[in-house]
Simulated scan of single mutants.
Amino acid sequence: MEFAKKCTRLAVLVHVSTAYVAGEREGLIHETPYEMGETLNGVIGLDIEQEKRIVDEKLEELRKESVPEKDARVAMKQLGIERAKIYGWPNTYVFTKAMGEMVVGALRGALPVVILRPTIVTSTCREPFPGWAEGVRTVDTLAVGYGTGKLTCFLGDINGIVDLIPADMVVNSMMVGMTAQAGRPGQSIYQVGTSSRNPVRYVNLQEVGLRYFRAHPYVNKQGKEVKVGKVTVLKSMSSFQRYMSLRYLFWLKGLEFVNAALCRSLEGTYSDLDKKIKFVMRLVELYRPYLFFKGVFDDTNTEKLWAAVRENDMAEAEIFYFDPESVDWEEYLMKVHMPGLVKHVFK
């Protein structure tokens, strides 16, 4: 922000945040700013400078104790989650994103500012070509796990909304938002997603995944096709843990015993099952805040932005498309997104 203020010809500053700065709120979530020190649970005392000091002090403590880097990373991640939960955010990522918005709002002065809040960004629908993705992101981790045979059960609300938005639509909304706000003092917030006007649900992803990978099975490193079945989705953590204990942990302990008795001849089978269990447990822990998410992101500002583009110039609207209602989920998921994941992301 201080650097931006030194740019004498600056037209607009864009800050990319995330819609999930809302934490685990329910109902309609509006495009409203965060004030400095605001929290999600009403707890007072959020001081960004103090949070930075806590981080520095913890790092110094770990350094003095000569804690190995791997263990230090775990300790810092745990500290981040603890600090986030104090003020109502579920994890470090959305907590620091919210603080970033607070800093931008507090320091912007007369600068024209756009804060963009995309939801879950997925592969491109058109540009630079359909289905392009780079790295495993959020919900795609589930698709990769399922297609490769690692994911057969999960925790969540199967009828819950999962707010997806193709990456090229996010970029287009960013460019149009810049143009709209350029040279105009003030701040505009745009939530870019589909839950309000074109929602897709976890059950839709489950059905698409089953149909796609049965029609196009993934071929693993051993050259074998991975057979998939319907994922068992459980509605509570307790039922999920019981399921895992009965179906997997029991098998794992039994296999461990047999493997030892047979001079580790089943080492590969045991290792594969162990990896599957750890993979599922890691995903559940990582995405638990959003597996039962009951919020819908209001995108009134973004909708007005799209309407202005469409009314002003249809040719430009075709170039800078970001209308969430234009996404045909069946077409996109089956013919664009899933093939794109397999080509660009699966390892």
Rank of each mutant, 00 (worst) to 15 (best):
M1C: 13
E2P: 01
K5V: 07
K6H: 15
C7N: 15
V12T: 10
V12H: 07
L13A: 10
T32A: 13
Y34C: 00
E35Y: 03
M36K: 10
G37R: 04
G37W: 04
E38K: 07
G42D: 00
I44P: 04
G45W: 07
L46Q: 07
I48Q: 07
R53W: 11
I54E: 09
E60Q: 12
E61W: 03
E61R: 11
R63S: 09
K64T: 07
K77I: 04
G80N: 01
E82C: 01
R83Y: 00
A84W: 01
K85D: 00
G88Y: 02
N91A: 02
F95Q: 05
M102G: 01
G109C: 04
L116P: 08
P128L: 11
F129A: 11
W132F: 14
W132E: 10
T141H: 04
G147R: 07
T148H: 03
F154Y: 10
F154Q: 05
L155A: 05
I161N: 04
N172Y: 02
M175E: 13
G177Q: 02
G177T: 05
T179E: 15
G183P: 08
R184E: 09
P185L: 12
G186D: 03
Q191V: 05
G193T: 04
T194R: 03
R197E: 12
N198C: 06
P199S: 09
R201K: 10
R201N: 06
V203T: 07
L210M: 09
F213H: 11
N220G: 10
G223R: 07
V226D: 05
G229W: 05
G229F: 07
K230S: 11
V233A: 02
K235V: 00
S238V: 12
F240M: 10
R242C: 00
M244C: 06
R247W: 11
Y248G: 06
L252K: 07
C263H: 11
G268I: 13
T269H: 13
Y270D: 03
K275R: 14
K278R: 14
V284W: 03
L286N: 11
F292H: 13
D299Q: 14
N312T: 14
A317L: 03
E330S: 13
Y332F: 15
L333K: 00
M334W: 12
K335P: 00
